[in-house]
């Protein structure tokens, strides 16, 4: 593939205002080509609004979105490189999955019928039944299959797992890694189930109330915080000077999550005074960051502190 100077997805100061609320409030991002991004955040944080503008389906109130350097809105040649299936995607009422896949094969130049058929088998999807009559999980499977078999350069999944059971979700993650390994592309995955997808992500973007809270490499984030547990006085003296993300206590026992990369000496010191240090999984980290940002008016500290 020819190297391009423009990032796969570039978002500049994007705002989207609905009558009563700011869905997006000055969002800027640059997502590189051929990486898997996680777009995380609470319900109503602005994830779907952002994704639908990225895909040229929605349009911004202000700011700009560029896909490989071009505005996707009403631009067929750029749109042809994108695939975005909504969480509650609607299909023609009388379509069967088979017919939906036939349509997708028309529009997505890289469509892989073999992959589609393999996924149909994996998900046990009845392809000749009307989509209207499918269960929620089967409906999600239709979207997942289109999103994956389309092999679009920019593939966006909005909570693709709704109604899928644990086994089906695992199949989705497995097939995604396999196919991505052979056919790299830019993938944006939005999800609540952070711990399930955490290992797949190369980069994490956390959005809250229409603003970017975190935009960081997943592996940089992992290990950027630590939970200190032990006697509350000792914990208090140990964590002095660190930014606290979360605090729990039980009697005289305290467990405090701090944002810190501890060195060997600090770890030894903690052990010496009987404090237990435990790593914080990505999911916890995202939850803690979101919660502590909501407690404070400006949520940019974490981002800056990481730099």
């Amino acid at each position: 593939m020819a190297p391009t100077s423009a990032p796969a997805i570039e978002v500049r100061n994007l705002t989207k205002t609905y009558r009563d609320a700011n869905a997006l409030d000055g969002v800027s991002l640059a997502l590189e080509e051929n990486r898997i991004y996680g777009l995380l955040g609470r319900n109503g944080a602005g994830k779907t609004t952002l994704m639908s503008i990225l895909a040229g389906q929605g349009y911004p109130t202000g700011g700009q979105v560029l896909i490989h350097g071009r505005n996707p809105y009403e631009n067929d040649s750029t749109l042809a490189r994108i695939c975005f299936i909504r969480e509650s995607q609607r299909y023609p009422d009388d379509f069967s999955p088979h017919q939906a896949f036939k349509a997708a094969a028309l529009f997505f130049a890289n469509w892989d019928q073999e992959l589609a058929e393999r996924l149909i088998e994996d998900f046990n999807l009845p392809t000749r039944r009307r989509i209207k009559k499918l269960s929620r999980g089967q409906l999600s499977a239709v979207g997942v299959i289109i999103g994956m078999a389309a092999r679009a350069e920019v593939t966006v999944f909005d909570e693709p797992y709704l109604g899928l059971d644990a086994v089906a979700r695992q199949i989705f993650y497995d097939r995604l890694v396999e196919d991505y390994a052979l056919h790299p592309r830019t993938i944006v995955l939005s999800s609540h189930l952070i711990d399930e997808i955490a290992n797949l992500l190369e980069h994490v973007v956390v959005i809250d109330k229409g603003r970017i809270l975190l935009d960081e490499d997943a592996d940089t984030l992992r290990g950027s915080a630590v939970a200190v547990t032990g006697n509350q006085d000792k914990v208090a003296s140990f964590i002095d000077g660190y930014r606290v993300l979360h605090r729990d206590s039980l009697g005289s026992l305290a467990s405090v999550t701090i944002q810190a990369r501890l060195g060997a000496t600090q770890r030894a010191m903690a052990a010496e005074i009987g404090l237990e240090l435990s790593p914080v999984p990505l999911q916890q980290l995202v939850v803690r960051t979101t919660m502590s940002a909501q407690a404070e008016p400006h949520g940019d500290h974490y981002q800056e502190a990481l730099k």
Binding site: E74, D76, Q89, R90, P92, F95, F108
Partner: peptide, 20 residues
């Protein structure tokens, strides 16, 4: 009515511009 309501949302997922 039907050709719009049934098919337009799907055409969006197929990355088709509104014009097309």
């Amino acid at each position: 009515i039907q050709s719009l309501t049934y098919t337009f949302p799907f055409s969006q997922a197929m990355s088709v511009s509104r014009r097309s």
